[in-house]
Write a protein that binds this DNA or RNA. Sequence first.
RNA 1: GCCCGAGUGGCGGAAUUGGUAUACGCGUUCGACUUAAAAUCGAAUGAGGAAACUCAUAUGGGUUCAAGUCCCAUCUCGGGCACCA
Length: 727
Amino acid sequence: MDRYDPKTIEETWQKIWQEQETFKAPSLKTAKDNHQAKMFLAEMFPYPSGAGLHVGHVRNFTIVDVLTRFYMQQEMNVLRPFGYDTFGLPAENYAIKTGISPQSATETNINNFRRQAKRLGLAIDWSREINTSNPEYYRWTQWCFLQLYKKGLAYRKESYQWWCPEDQTVLANEQVENGRCWRCGHEVEKKKMKQWFFKITEYADELLDEVDALDWPEKIKTMQKNWIGRSKGAEIIFEIEDKKDTIKVFTTRPDTIFGVTFLVLAPEHPLIKDLVTEKTREAVERYQKETTKKSEIERQENKEKTGVFTGSYAINPATGEKIPIWVSDYVLMGYGEGAIMAVPAHDDSDYEFAEKFDLPIKTVIEKPEDLDDNGHCYHGEGKLINSGQFDGTDSYDAREQVVAWLEEQGIGKEKITYRMRDWLISRQRYWGCPIPIAYDKDGNEHPIPEDQLPVIIPEVEDYKPDHTGRSALAKAEDWLKVDIEVTDKKTGEKHIETMARETDTLDGYACSSWYLWRYVSPHDDNYAWSPDAIKYWAPTDIYVGGDHAVAHLLYIRFWCKFFADQGLLPFREPVKTLLYNGYINAPDGKKMSKSKGNVIDPLDVIDSGYGADTLRTYEMFIGPYDQDAAWDTKAIGGVYRFLNRCWSLCYNTPVAQEGTSPNSSLRNKATKKVTEDLHRRSFNTAVAALMEYVNELYKSGASHEDITTLAKLLKPFAPHLACEMLE
RNA sequence: GCCCGAGUGGCGGAAUUGGUAUACGCGUUCGACUUAAAAUCGAAUGAGGAAACUCAUAUGGGUUCAAGUCCCAUCUCGGGCACCA
């Protein structure tokens, strides 16, 4: 052979790797006996869409692959599995349109994905492949649900939830982006429904406190902190004039209590109906109706304050003054108590509201004189004024003192509030993991016993959700009925009762909340993850992805903490190091999309003659892995030329005699540089260093030893060519 | 509005701990090979200048023997949060 022929080389080596199971992780026994360090790497497993792999997958997978091959060269026990996140709307919508079952469409797509992934020459332990819609897998997803249910962390409650009218399902808060559905982009609505939740708020403090210590990008850590949104403040009780009811508010500034000149309730606040008077009832009810009708986008767009007076008054506990109670949509029912004490002198929103409705403004914090602040209200710290016994106190210290004073009177206490809500997991969709619950004739819920798992998704004729807001599962009449043994509470006797299954399925994020642990023992019939294997391999050392900054990456942390508390995981954080890779955009810098017709298909790139090695190396060379990059149709040619030069050096150039200098020092320099760069994940400069090395070898001549070194250093990036050269 | 990042040739980017700015690649130009083209190989390539040299890392200051890197201010772009009390 005198020409670099990627097609032949890549087919040859892919076949060898397949036959020899080159990348199969060592057995537990072997791994422990050889006393090497362990390394568990994974990419965020893909959703196998009908469109096949795109260049973004290639970047994501190649990062993991380069590290996998590198750590194998460093003689570590490496686990690098692969799987598919297969539940989800696209397959179901496709089924509704074409009648092809999601089961069969998913199988087709997986086969396609696997075939394409193999053509990239990925160093995957294929014996560990998992698929979330396989009953062998989702049996254990259901088992996880039951563990959470047993501890009261999976529960059902009725509340207003985000509803996507296009997809006919509810959504988690994390799946609503700017008032729109994350999947289809349709505007979402609020709908009152009884739904299943996971009590993620139980772990809010730990999720927040342990974020800082993680070896994760700061960007992601900040997003998670913002999402959890802990704020420390006080809950204060206001009495209502001439009424027995009281109003609870949450505030982060109890030190401003003397400046409270009115209260504001969210339009959904349950107490409003008791506060309205003959005169105000009509106006208040009209306002409430208008608010409900407004979409979230409208509520966000129109920031002009609106509101209406209830007709009732509360008493400021600090001053004894009578203060009016108003209703306004700038107060949100979902946060704090759904009611606020308004301090217009020191809060922008309250100030705007007071200005608009001509309510009194009372300054209680003195602005430091040297401060040049042209704003209307001062939110900073300072000495208290007009605040009775607290006059002269520094506002920061006054926070605690005021709370203590209110607490003495039994009308206030310290309180911590979170922005994060519990995780809504019900989906009114067919193509998801069935929630293992049944209802008796009185509507009481009963968990499906663990020995009756999995609850298999039934085949149906028609995949459309029914018009009542239930998934197509509701149409599987035989499946709906289930016999469950119940114990009579009074007599203790057991009997079998026929019940109706839950027709909601689990949010797909539930299925991906534990898959990293399944990888350690993917075929275990007795455990979701086997205790020995999890102890050795987990947690995941390096996890690579470019999406799901809050949702998935928060959920896996939550489940990890929960299962650690059950004694089922010997660690409390699932991912040691997170690498968050950037996107690959079209050559014009815009996002690739089918509709724009600017999609680069990686398989086309391989088949055009460049081969997988060029594609992989190019995507590592394109720029720092964590930055977005634009595809450059010309620059990939430079990488192809580079691999050609490596080839020529090996096959078409006379072998130089091995001398001592300068070749050995060049070798050492290149080895040191590439190794260091891989340790600090600077893939682009590692490739640059290899190019430099090759350029130098062209000048000096390459000995046998030089070519061997080059091939070894090249192997993580262009494994097929490197293996061929080493042969 | 608040909180993070980032601004370096024609382009993507490098400079790891304050120590030769522009590695590597693309593009461009010239040369070799060829009847020719492609491919390949070699050379040049921040700006100005014949050269010595001067000026250049968004802008303006500062610290330092030394600043792309540290400090202050400003501008621009990107991201996150956003009526969260």
